[in-house]
Design a protein around this nucleic acid. Structure first.
Lengths: 110, 110
DNA sequence: ACACTGTATCACCGCATGGTCATATAGTCA
DNA sequence: TGACTATATGACCATGCGGTGATACAGTGT
């Protein structure tokens, strides 16, 4: 169980994959489109897409000669939003504690 | 930005770290307590705790000779719950599609 | 100062994984 | 069938990272 959850998180733990998911946020895209969009090289993108597909995060559909990928599990974006918010807040606090070393607040001591 | 988010996800992408976080879910614990609880070896646990601390996910407080770690960012558990739900649902669907290869439903084709 | 406990650090190994190039495969069209 | 496009696969390298044992460091009590 824990292993499964960890695998999912690991899937989201690569910047390139996050970029790919973001590229799919507003609709399906073919491999080629994503490659061009991210300025990546084709085998790399393809590999990541296959991994995401194996993890059940994206769906895959052949159409003619191309293959369209799309988000299969929208929960992804909620996850990213949560992490994003929390991370940016964290960064802000760290900045504060750097600029004003004296901070007798309750929630410091990180 | 994306790099930061990815780093957070990667932090959650190791089973051992998830176990550590779970051990902290209901309150702070010392390193030794966690080591004993997870049957791990001390340097390993210590390393993970330091990493989690550097990532801002756990807080750290010295008390006498021991060091207490605690959850710094409860959003972690919301993340885990979301992933957990989605993962288990996914697993269920995969099972279904294995047992009944004929599934003319709308949401198949994964 | 010494012994003792708890935690962190160092050095090392092994492995999983991302990036990349070359190449294979599937599909389309003539 | 053959040429062409789109995607996947294989082989390879480099590297990041987790696990582990030995050891250093910090705090406490005597």
């Amino acid at each position: 169980m824990i292993e499964l959850v960890a695998r999912r998180f690991r899937m989201l733990g690569e910047p390139q994959r996050l970029r790919i998911l973001r590229a799919l946020e507003h609709g399906r895209r073919t491999v080629g489109e994503i490659v061009e969009l991210l300025q990546g090289n084709q085998p790399n993108i393809s590999k990541h897409l296959l991994a995401l597909h194996a993890a059940g995060l994206v769906a895959r559909r052949r159409e003619g000669n191309s293959i369209y990928y799309s988000i299969a599990d929208p929960v992804i974006f909620r996850l990213c939003e949560l992490v994003c918010r929390s991370a940016s807040q964290d960064a802000r606090e760290q900045l504060e504690s750097l600029t004003q070393p004296e901070a007798p607040t309750t929630r410091g001591k990180r």
